[in-house]
Design a protein around this nucleic acid. Structure first.
Lengths: 115, 115
DNA sequence: CAATTTGGTATCATCGGTGATACTGGTTAC
DNA sequence: GTAACCAGTATCACCGATGATACCAAATTG
């Protein structure tokens, strides 16, 4: 960490960090991302691919990911209605940072669990 | 995100991400880091420098940061006892990733709030 | 000698996120 | 025609994180 400048800057940074964590945080966001990454596009397919998730939490998390522009939700209103969830290019750029966070977490676990 | 391989790998990655987020997550971790970064070493100094924090939450968060080896807690048992909290080199290395997360959060906010 | 400071811990209340379960309206398969 | 599937929403319960408040022993200050 570099030396900090002032209170305002700190608050802005704290908010920015919370934002970043919020986008990917929680129990289900990454499993959902992996599921879509693995080719699942439809609500029930994603649901079935993630053991333990409820429709409620999936619905909620998909909407949050969509709000954050990491996925798109497309409705094909043919009968029957079909809904497809897909990654955005924006998400792929964020993926680089996510992978760094994952790598740091793995290294950190080795540091902490080491005698 | 690269293509995923298997379930086990996903679970390991999800855990690793949770670990990374846990270390820096929550309302108070970054303000505490900034406070120590700004030269505060003692419990009450840190407490006074962070508006709204309670002794309970400060105590708890300091212990977690110490458990994660981001800060050290040194007791000087002269009379009166003096306790000093300080950054570790390990924390400084993590600081690079924290700053990336902050920068991404700032950019992301501009993306989301843009018409 | 009374008040304040230091470095916390203990107890209780509250609040939001999560989980469990039920339900919906439409469509299709048997 | 009834059973199952799709894409969810609604309601309730619970639990853990957080906040508020009080308290502690030791030492220092006035």
């Amino acid at each position: 960490m570099e030396k900090c400048i002032n209170i305002q800057q700190q608050e802005v940074n704290t908010q920015a960090l919370q934002d970043t964590i919020y986008v990917i945080g929680g129990k289900w966001k990454l499993p959902i991302i992996y599921s879509i990454c693995n080719g699942n596009k439809r609500f029930r397919d994603i649901e079935r691919s993630i053991p333990g998730i409820t429709t409620r939490m999936l619905s909620r998390n998909l909407r949050e990911l969509e709000d954050n522009k990491l996925i798109t939700r497309t409705v094909y209103p043919d009968s029957p209605v079909l809904v497809a969830y897909e990654f955005t290019e924006y998400a792929k750029a964020y993926g680089i940072l996510i992978n760094e966070m994952i790598e740091w977490g793995k290294k950190h676990r080795r540091v902490i669990t080491a005698k």
